[in-house]
Structures are given as C-alpha cells and as structure tokens.
Simulated assay, not measured.
Amino acid sequence: MTTEEGRQDRGTDREDGDFEEYADLGATTENAMDIAETSMDRVRKLVPDETLADRIRQKSVHATGDPEFQHLVRFTGETAEEPVVAGARAVLEERPIVTDITMVKAGITGRGHDCPVEKAIGNGAELAARTGMTRTAASVLELDRRGVYDGAIAVVGNAPTAALALADCIEDGTRPAVVVATPVGFVKAAESRKRLRDVAGEHGVPAITNVGRRGGSGLAAGLTNELVHVASDARSGEVDLP
C-alpha cells in the first residue's frame, strides 16, 4: 500500500464525528463558540470586568495567554476608556481600519462591522528605495500623504519603524480616530510605542499601546477586534458609549 492510499483509507474510515476535535477555533461553529466563551470566562476570573478598558486588558491576556500582560497595556487619553470609546465610535461610523502589515490585516474580524480594511505595506516602494528607510515606514508615510490615516483606526502590530513614522505624521497634523500600536521586538519597539504615546497625548489622539519588548500582530488584531465587539454591543444596546 502506498502512503497516499493509506491516507485515503484512513480518511474513508472516519465518520463525521471523528473530526470534532478539529473544530474551527475561529468561533463560527457551535463547538468553537463553546471553546471561545470558556476561554474568555477563564480570562474574566483573572482580569477585572468592570470597565471598557478592562475589556481591552482582558483581550490582551486572551491574545497573549499571559495574565500579567494586563499590567502592560497603556491608554492615552483623558481617561482609560477614551480610546476604547473613540475606537468603537469609529467602527460604528465605518471608518477605515489601516494596518501596517498583511498579518495584522488578516487577523481583523470580518464580522460585526462594515469598515474597509487595508494594509500600508506595499505602498511607498519608491520612497523606500530612494531613502533607504524601511518599507513599512515608507508605506505609512505614503498612505499619510494620501490622507488615509485622518479619521481612521490606525493599527501597528509588527514594525517599530511604522509606529515611529505614524508618530511623525501625527506630529505633522494627521489625526487618526484612534491608534492601536503593539509593535514587537528588541530594536526600537518599546521606544517607538513610547514616542507614539507621547505624541498622541500631546496632540489629543486616543491610543492603546503597551510597554516592554512584547507585542505583535496577533495582539494588535485582537485589541482592534475588541473595539469591534464593543461597537457591536453598543449597537445592540448592551453598552452605553459615554
């Protein structure tokens, strides 16, 4: 028997019920919904569940699998709730969601909103080649030149240079509706988020970031998705947006 024949035989012998353990973790099937809800129930036992900011902290723990990450999240605004409210309102207003790279875009949920979702990477190639700056920084600057970031949900999940470029754009007058920035790494990651926090605070742009070296695309997508979930709850009347 060939290897391929063996695979076919094993597949033929299985019944539909034998595949339940592989149920989609994207929370669209009944089994997956149970898994997702059980996971969040466990997170709520580890993280306070009183405010909209707590929902972002919970999602950070859910996305990283680390209860301590709740203490690394930072909110830029007059209150911790301000960037959450600003993000939810932007979702309700169907503002664009603009990510730095493809991986973050792929993690943005397609349910619960009608926001156009686009990525920066792939733009600004000529600028990158001419100046030697990173492709992600050039991409952010190119989209900003087109006015894409004004009023948008600006998401940076991977590249510190994208966060630094976005900070420069805000300093020069660009006003996103909200910024979610969790670039990861050992070179300029923490520094880029601090600069973004400082600039956002100075110019009144609500932002959600974190401290330390950790972060990443999955975290940025998860936090952005929680803004979508807050907006959905506001739409259904379960949440009042101040």
Rank of each mutant, 00 (worst) to 15 (best):
M1N: 10
M1C: 12
E4V: 15
G6V: 13
D9K: 13
R10G: 02
D16C: 02
G17R: 11
D18Y: 07
E20A: 13
E21V: 08
E21N: 04
Y22S: 10
A23G: 02
T28I: 12
N31A: 14
A32P: 15
A32Q: 14
D34E: 12
I35P: 00
I35N: 08
S39Y: 10
M40Y: 14
M40L: 13
R42T: 08
L46G: 00
D49V: 02
L52D: 11
D54R: 12
R55Y: 02
Q58H: 05
S60C: 09
V61G: 00
D66W: 07
E68C: 00
F69Q: 14
Q70A: 15
F75R: 01
G77T: 09
T79Q: 01
E81G: 11
V84A: 07
E93D: 15
P96H: 12
T99G: 09
D100R: 05
D100C: 08
I101G: 02
V104D: 01
V104H: 00
A106T: 11
T109C: 06
G110I: 09
R111N: 10
H113C: 06
K119P: 00
K119Q: 15
A120M: 07
N123R: 03
A125F: 11
E126K: 04
T136V: 13
A137N: 03
L141E: 06
E142V: 03
R145H: 11
R145P: 00
V148K: 08
Y149T: 10
G151F: 08
A154L: 05
A154R: 00
V155G: 10
T161M: 06
A165C: 13
A165F: 13
A167Q: 01
A167K: 02
D168W: 05
D168T: 12
C169I: 03
G173A: 06
A177T: 09
V179T: 07
P183W: 04
F186T: 03
F186M: 08
A189H: 01
A190N: 14
R195G: 11
R195W: 06
R197S: 15
D198V: 15
D198Y: 09
V199G: 06
A200L: 08
H203P: 00
G204V: 11
N210L: 13
G212R: 10
R213D: 10
G216V: 13
A220T: 04
V228A: 04
A231K: 03
G237W: 06
G237R: 03
E238D: 15
D240E: 15
